[in-house]
């Protein structure tokens, strides 16, 4: 069964993934909206940057984050100046890395949902006295609710599943950066296969269940036609 260290790792994982998901939604929503609506020529570059974590080996992302947030990096310099110390091998550093790592999994479903809404509901809202911000919350958010749900699920699940980035940026510090995926690695290294099975099997079941929910429940409802 699970030992205390495993429980700690699970709890830490839930914390990291929850905080990262909230930050991802706060950050990803305006970013996705801007990427859909703006005529800016910087859009292409931004889209590519957002999608980078999809194709980069996590170790590459982790490596650069380590450099950036380290004592000699730009970010590290700023955080040191601010009296926060350096972020690698801290909980905060891990959350920041997770946000960047899972960004496309939140931004892309939101982008798709926003794009599917189209221009017309926004125009209808404007002719009914709703300001753009009002329209966003009273029309766009409800119409894009499936996009938000998908983004939340994928953002959370993907953060739970990270390993390479954690190892580079977070290390293996109990209750600070030792998340489930790292704990599984520890068990396997120590040849504790039974312990590894419990955690790995649990993660497998968890991931499958939420993906099943997403594809089974959400996709039967119309996402492509939010407007009738």
């Amino acid at each position: 069964m699970l030992n205390a260290a495993d429980i700690d790792a699970l709890w830490l994982t839930v914390q990291v993934a929850s905080i990262a998901t909230v930050l991802l939604l706060l950050l990803g929503t305006p970013l996705a909206w801007w990427l859909v609506r703006s005529p800016s020529r910087w859009k292409g570059i931004c889209n590519a940057l957002v999608a980078l974590p999809l194709v980069l080996p996590p170790s590459v992302l982790g490596f650069y984050l380590l450099i950036l947030m380290g004592p000699k990096g730009v970010v590290g310099h700023i955080t040191t100046e601010l009296g926060l110390g350096t972020l690698p091998f801290t909980f905060t550093g891990l959350v920041i890395a997770s946000v960047l790592y899972s960004l496309p999994f939140v931004v892309q479903p939101l982008q798709a949902a926003f794009a599917a809404i189209g221009e017309r509901p926004l125009e209808a809202a404007a002719t009914l006295r709703a300001s753009p911000l009002d329209t966003f919350f009273s029309v766009v958010v409800p119409l894009a609710r499936h996009g938000f749900l998908t983004a939340t699920i994928l953002g959370f699940a993907h953060t739970v599943g990270e390993f390479g980035v954690v190892l580079m940026v977070g290390g293996n510090i109990p209750n600070k950066t030792r998340v489930v995926s790292v704990q599984i690695y520890n068990h396997v290294e120590a040849l504790e296969y039974e312990q590894a099975h419990w955690l790995a099997g649990g993660l497998l079941l968890f991931s499958f269940t939420i993906l099943l929910f997403m594809y089974g429940v959400l996709k039967t409802q119309s996402v492509a036609q939010p407007f009738k």
């Binding site: 017309r120 509901p121 125009e123 209808a124 809202a125 404007a126 002719t127 009914l128 006295r129 709703a130 300001s131 753009p132 009002d134 029309v139 409800p142 119409l143 609710r145 939010p226 407007f227 009738k228």
Partner: peptide, 17 residues
């Protein structure tokens, strides 16, 4: 949204939610 007008679109444009 600050103009006192009513607008009827070609397609009804009702809010589906």
């Amino acid at each position: 949204h600050k103009r006192s007008l009513g607008y009827v679109f070609q397609e009804a444009n009702l809010f589906s939610h």
